[in-house]
Design a binder for these strands. Structure first.
Lengths: 252, 252
DNA sequence: AGAATACAATCTGTATACAATATTATGCAT
DNA sequence: ATGCATAATATTGTATACAGATTGTATTCT
């Protein structure tokens, strides 16, 4: 079911397998701790073992799987602490990105892109009541903003590292935005987030590296709050991306 | 030649291929930009295509190779800026590790391990004139210290990210220590580095997160200085690990 | 009845064959 | 002579077959 939407894309079998497997994992059909039988995946996806094997290696590097000493791969389980730390790492690296951008300077056109994105976000945040569509639009613009920030940092080495943390669904910049739609604190958190966005751009423009860095770190703290609020009850918990990978404290 | 030392280890073909290919790249036999012909690697290593393919994927994730859009892999080239940024990222992440350790507290035994390592380093640094053996011993203890710091942070998510950045040879904690042996500033830099080590442990013990973080960041700056000193002339340049991957500014 | 061992089924790791695609070289036309 | 098109070649992506290892089960011995 989860993979059906991606069946007919024309690309390599390896990529298809990677996307399909990721969906299988994130949708919970393959549970944390499960050893992934290559043969069963073969008949489930109708792809031969070789590209599936490639996909498994890539997903291991991505962090969704872990190698089993005796051979093969298993779905990785994450604790709440893991997610917390992953968010903290993202915040730290995005902070570094903001500092790079501020200290090294950003071209006028890139700064303009950031400001344009800022305005698109502004227009949404000031609305009195946000619809579901508004939220999904917000997710898109929010992702764009974070992408533009990394571009502004102009550092391939840093971009690589950020890509890696963000690839974990619950650490991604828009991971908890969907959850926010359900929370009473939504409007408030969005307002603060947008204040951060605006100030970071301002700090970059004014070449205030330290301030830009601190702001992005603080920005990630909002994700921490969302995480805690979201995991508190079952209804919102299910909306957390990759929630099925989270093992509760006393699971073993 | 470079790979011969690893020929007879008993492990999987994939791991053998990965190690051999890494050596081939780092020794400069495969030059930056070169497309890696799978078949030629097959006859060079006497390993079939499948495990070589796996190794190529892993080396791509590791950052030594990059995928070519039309297919296959090429050896990645790095600019001096890339190396600078990789070191900065490492410093930032190790700073975060130090902060985690300080804020969350470290068990007595782990703190004792750190202090023991500190003393082993101390004993070496105070020697008036360091031999080559002293330096290689220093490299070992230095690596141990950085490993212990990551352990003290007790954060798998962070450890993963640090592993990734350290896997690039020129970003690793001991990358430039060998070069230091050739530099007149050697003793001075080692003294400062050890001061950082000592203060970080102190800061962790005293639960001073901010100080611990700042110190590890500053610590990475020593690597920046080593980098600049080392790349200045050809003799020391050759000692920089993975120097063959560095393209000079006006290479294209 | 419980534990240990042996056997069987299954699975992963590796090798190789095949097919599709990209690259290169050659020839022709402008 | 240069540029483009076509064909030959080489290389990657995929499928599958085989061998070694591992895991689970059943039987036997204590």
């Amino acid at each position: 079911m989860a993979a059906t939407s991606l069946e007919n894309v024309s690309s390599s079998q390896t990529v298809k397998a990677q996307l399909a497997l990721r969906d299988l994992i994130l949708s919970g059909e393959l549970k944390p701790g499960d050893r992934i039988s290559e043969l069963s995946v073969v008949e489930r996806l109708g792809i031969s073992r070789t590209p599936i094997r490639m996909a498994l290696v890539r997903l291991e590097e991505e962090g969704l799987l872990e190698g089993i000493p005796s051979g093969g791969f298993a779905v990785k389980a994450f604790s709440e602490a893991d997610i917390h730390d992953a968010i903290e790492v993202r915040g730290t690296l995005e902070g570094l990105a903001a500092r790079f951008a501020a200290e090294r300077g950003v071209s006028a056109s890139r700064l303009a892109d950031l400001k344009a994105c800022l305005e698109k976000l502004d227009e949404l945040v000031v609305r009195p009541k946000l619809t579901i569509d508004d939220f999904s639009e917000y997710v898109g613009f929010n992702r764009e903003f974070h992408t533009l920030l990394v571009v502004a940092a102009d550092s391939p080495a840093l971009a690589r590292q950020i890509d890696r943390v963000v690839s974990l669904p619950f650490a991604s910049e828009s991971g908890f935005v969907k959850v926010q739609a359900m929370l009473p604190e939504a409007q408030y958190i969005l307002t603060i987030a947008q204040e951060h966005h605006r100030c970071v751009v301002r700090a970059i423009e004014d070449r205030e590296g330290g301030r830009a860095e601190a702001l992005m770190r603080e920005h990630a703290r909002l994700a921490h709050r969302n995480l805690q609020l979201a995991l508190r009850n079952q209804r919102t918990r299910e909306l957390v991306p990759g929630a099925v990978l989270i093992r509760r404290r006393n699971d073993f």
